[in-house]
Simulated assay, not measured.
Amino acid sequence: MADQKWDKMLVRTSGWLGGDGLYSMPLNGVRRTGGTGKAETFLWFSDTIVGEIEEDSLQPGWEMIHNSVGYLRGNSPDPSKIDFHWGKDEIGKPAAMFHPNTAQAQPGDYYWLGDGFFNHRRDSTLYLFAYRIKKMPGGVYPFEDVGVSLIALPKGSRPPFKNHRQLDTPLFQKDSQGKGKVVFGVAVLANTIGAGAPKPDGYVYVYGVRGIGKELLVARVKDEAFEDFSQWRYWDGNSWNIDIHQAAALTNRVSNEMSVTFLEDGRVLATYQLDTDAPTVMVQAGQTPVGPFQPAKKIFETPEIYNDLDFYTYNAKAHPHLSKPGELLISYNVNSFDFFKDILVHPNHYRSRFIKVKL
Score class of each variant (00 low, 15 high):
Ser230Cys: 02
Val146Gln: 13
Trp62Glu: 00
Tyr71Ser: 09
Arg210Asn: 08
Asp89Ala: 03
Asp223Trp: 04
Pro320Arg: 06
Lys38Met: 04
Pro107Asp: 00
Thr280Ala: 13
Thr33Trp: 08
Ala219Trp: 01
Thr169Tyr: 10
Gly185Thr: 04
Phe226Ile: 05
Glu52Lys: 14
Arg31Asp: 07
Gly156Tyr: 08
Met64Leu: 14
Ala278Trp: 08
Ser157Tyr: 01
Val11Ile: 10
Pro26Trp: 11
Thr169His: 00
Lys298Asn: 11
Lys162His: 08
Leu189Asn: 00
Val182His: 06
Ile343Cys: 11
Asn191Glu: 03
Ile53Arg: 04
Val182Arg: 11
Gly116Arg: 07
Ser259Asn: 08
Ile212Pro: 03
Ser76Tyr: 06
Phe226Gln: 01
Leu344Thr: 12
Phe337Met: 06
His346Val: 13
Asp201Trp: 04
Lys38Thr: 10
Trp16His: 12
Gln4Pro: 05
Phe42Ile: 02
Arg12Thr: 15
Asp228Met: 08
Lys38Arg: 09
Thr313Asn: 13
Gln273Gly: 14
Arg165Tyr: 13
Gly116Met: 06
Gly178Met: 09
Thr271Glu: 02
Ser57Gln: 13
Asp201Val: 09
Leu113His: 07
Ile193Gln: 11
Ile65Leu: 14
Tyr332Pro: 03
Leu344Asn: 07
Val290Arg: 12
Val209Ser: 03
Val50Pro: 00
Asp236Gln: 04
Asp243Thr: 10
Ala152Gly: 05
Trp62Met: 01
Asn238Lys: 09
Arg253Gly: 01
Phe98Val: 00
Ser80Gln: 15
Phe161Lys: 12
Asp145Ser: 11
Asn119Ala: 14
Ala2Asp: 15
Asp236Met: 06
Ser149Asn: 15
Gln231Val: 05
Val148Leu: 09
Ala285Thr: 13
Thr288Glu: 09
His321Ala: 14
Val281Arg: 12
Gly15Val: 03
Trp62Tyr: 15
Glu55Asn: 15
His85Asp: 01
Tyr350Phe: 15
Ile53Leu: 04
Glu257Arg: 13
Gln104Cys: 11
Pro279Leu: 05
Ile299His: 01
Ser239Gly: 09
Arg353Ser: 05
Pro325Val: 05
Lys181Ala: 09
Thr125Ser: 13
Met1Thr: 07
Gln231Cys: 09
Gly35Ser: 01
Gly213His: 15
Asp228Ala: 08
Lys162Cys: 04
Phe98Glu: 00
Thr36Lys: 07
Tyr127Met: 07
Trp112Gln: 05
Ala105Phe: 03
Val50Arg: 00
Glu215Asn: 08
Gly196Met: 03
Lys5Asn: 13
Ala103Gly: 08
Thr313Leu: 05
Gln177Trp: 15
Asp277His: 14
Met25Pro: 07
Lys162Tyr: 00
Phe143Asn: 02
Ser230Arg: 10
Val345His: 09
Phe84Thr: 06
Arg267Lys: 14
Phe340Lys: 13
Ser323Val: 07
Ile65Tyr: 11
Phe129Met: 04
Arg233Leu: 12
Ala2Ile: 15
Ser24Gly: 01
Pro137Tyr: 06
Trp112Arg: 08
Gly74Thr: 02
Ser352Val: 12
Pro295His: 15
Val254Ile: 15
Gly237Trp: 10
Thr41Ser: 10
Ala285Pro: 11
Ile65Val: 06
Ala316Glu: 02
Gly70Ser: 06
Pro347Met: 05
Asn119Gly: 03
Leu322Arg: 10
Glu264Arg: 03
